[in-house]
Design a protein around this nucleic acid. Structure first.
Lengths: 353, 353
DNA sequence: CTGCCAAGGGAAATCGATTACCCTCTTGCG
DNA sequence: CGCAAGAGGGTAATCGATTTCCCTTGGCAG
């Protein structure tokens, strides 16, 4: 970590001249005990040191400002204190917020987060999975996983995996934390139906195994139950990861229809932002002439996007929920999917149409 | 990493029964060479293996799907492939975007990001600094550092440190990457002055050694040069980290003044969002009756906040710039501050007042 | 023919912490 | 009194990869 790497001259005596603070050997030497005893005191192994010895070791630790090196420990235990978090798209503020929540909760457990952005690409995800494995991570958390060979490997090997917001594409029974996307979609349908609106449109990005897929399922199921032919509802989408642009372009297509929708359900807030812009450019009043529904409920919505009805994803609850799930997994349990409570905030309760 | 930790029964033969894929010993055995030779082939040490031997080793690597374990390597080299990124506040989308850019660039170098959120707290930052050190990180990148004892230690020890967007609070000559906040502040002043506006207000969060401090400096310097008494300009601030709320409350106070400002300079976009909301609640037209300036230029601004003039911080350029700086530092150079180009986007060119 | 150097490659030390195994005392109990 | 159990603590193996010494062989110049 220092600038002149200079590894030519290893330290003669144990730990002396170490760059990285004190080593266990130094602590042991200072306390006049063996490294074994020092290690046991530090790790609180009972019946292995007299009160007086333990005190000497603790004093040495304090004097030297010793902190156990994570690397040596990880090598011996074949397990580090790192938890890998693989997010599909950090540019999405919703995923960033979840990552932040995870980080904070892991810290409370003495764990460290290593954060990766897979950009929704299987090859990148695989590269990261292998690297996390090489780091002997204690668990891997996928905030939006994609199907990939290495994912199959680690699943088969019994590694501790948690899938957030998007179920394991390869095994629906894998541990899951997130909102109930199907129920949330149905809830939007409910709000629309009870207001009698029928000119409904949908905007989405890729639906391939994403949360959007389930959101749409819930929405359509409920609409269909009310006698609406969902197959004929106008929909628009687009390629890429930039939801805002997809929303803008998709809305443009919806507006070209002979009978444009009056209520547009966007499967993410970002899509709604882009769509909003397009609607305004078309001279439409929002939410007077066209209203929007979104998902995630970005915290800025109440401040500068009060036209957007959105399903609040409780980012802050993800970290604690995931940590709780991890602990169950480490105890050997096989916990059921953990659904966090979402809430649909109606900022424009009166819908046009 | 697996569920039954079960370390009681160590593998009898080297690497057999390993949970984590192949080890170097297995590769060496399969290729019929020593681990030393295998290691040298894998690391491309010249003149240490015949072409034929090298080929056998590479074949064994491919057969076994071997990947070097990062932990063993880190222990031996006293340096891991991890780079610690300590961000002051991940809830700020601007910092999250920078972290994302850093992550992507580090990946290009075969490095891994470990991301921490210090919440602007010295004690949390210290805890993370020590943990990163225990991980033998190759460098630490501070996206908004606060003054703290452990920071002084690592600086004194010559660890590789990079300060992003906020200079090292303890040593202004430490490596820096970010926009020129002073110049950006001055640029806003320039735009305001050339339109003849004099009823100027300022909203900011804590200024203590933050980027805001320098932004304000540049703004005031330029205003003062134009004969404006900056000391008497209305300003508002508030405690905490939630810039939106601070902006909302601060704007409330500005609007209570006998002569409320017509142009409000917010030292971050989030402050402007909160202030916008308050202005609208007061029945003011934005930007007709009161206009706003912000910093960071959140990517959503052009879509749903077209009333906001903002200084674009080129998040995407941070990663490459930081990696370039790191490489200079690792070569032993002492690079000067690296200023990224910012750009003030005027979305409401006509200012009220 | 001798000495030297380079190429090729192996044995073993090393990084730091954990832990199995062993040894030595006490102490308590039959 | 004898002996088992447990407290207290040291020695050394171990995790996986890197790297320092070595050793051997050939080739080539002197």
């Amino acid at each position: 970590m220092r600038q002149p790497p200079d590894r030519r001259q290893p330290a003669a005596r144990p730990g002396v001249d170490r760059r990285n603070g004190a080593s266990l050997a130094m602590v042991a030497a200072r306390a006049g005990v063996s490294v074994a005893t020092a290690s046991r005191v530090i790790n609180g192994v009972a019946n292995k040191a007299s009160a007086e010895t333990a005190e000497r070791v603790r004093a040495a630790v304090a004097d030297l400002g010793y902190r156990p090196g994570s690397v040596g420990r990880a090598l011996r235990r074949q397990e580090s204190r790192i938890v890998g978090v693989l997010a599909a798209n950090l540019a999405n503020p919703s995923m960033a917020a979840i990552a932040s929540s995870i980080e904070w909760s892991l810290r409370g457990e003495g764990l460290v987060m290593s954060l990766c952005d897979t950009h929704e690409r299987a090859d990148v995800q695989d590269e990261y999975i292998r690297e996390m494995r090489a780091q002997l991570v204690r668990a891997m958390i996928f905030v939006g996983a994609v199907d990939s060979p290495a994912l199959d490997e680690v699943r088969a090997d019994g590694d501790t995996l948690v899938f957030v917001n998007r179920p394991d594409p390869g095994d629906p029974t894998s541990p899951y934390v997130g909102i109930d996307n199907v129920a949330a979609g149905a809830e939007i349908a409910e709000r629309i139906l009870e207001r009698g609106v029928r000119r409904i449109g949908v905007l989405h990005a890729s639906l391939d195994r994403t949360a959007g897929h389930w959101r749409l399922l819930g929405l359509f199921d409920r609409l269909q139950a009310a006698g609406i032919d969902t197959a004929s509802l106008p929909r628009a989408s687009g390629p890429g990861l930039d939801h805002i642009v997809i929303g803008y372009q998709g809305m443009a297509r919806l507006l070209e229809l002979p009978v444009p929708p009056r209520v547009v359900v966007c499967l993410s807030d970002l899509l709604a932002y882009g769509a909003y812009r397009r609607a305004r450019e078309a001279g439409l009043e929002v939410p007077g002439e066209v209203a929007f529904f979104g998902f995630d409920d970005n915290p800025i919505n109440p401040w500068i996007a009060d036209w957007l009805n959105s399903v609040r994803v409780p980012s802050d609850h993800y970290g604690p929920a995931i940590v709780a799930l991890l602990q169950q997994l480490w105890r050997g349990e096989r916990p059921p999917p953990l659904y966090l409570t979402h809430q649909l905030t109606m900022r424009s309760p009166r819908l046009p149409g």
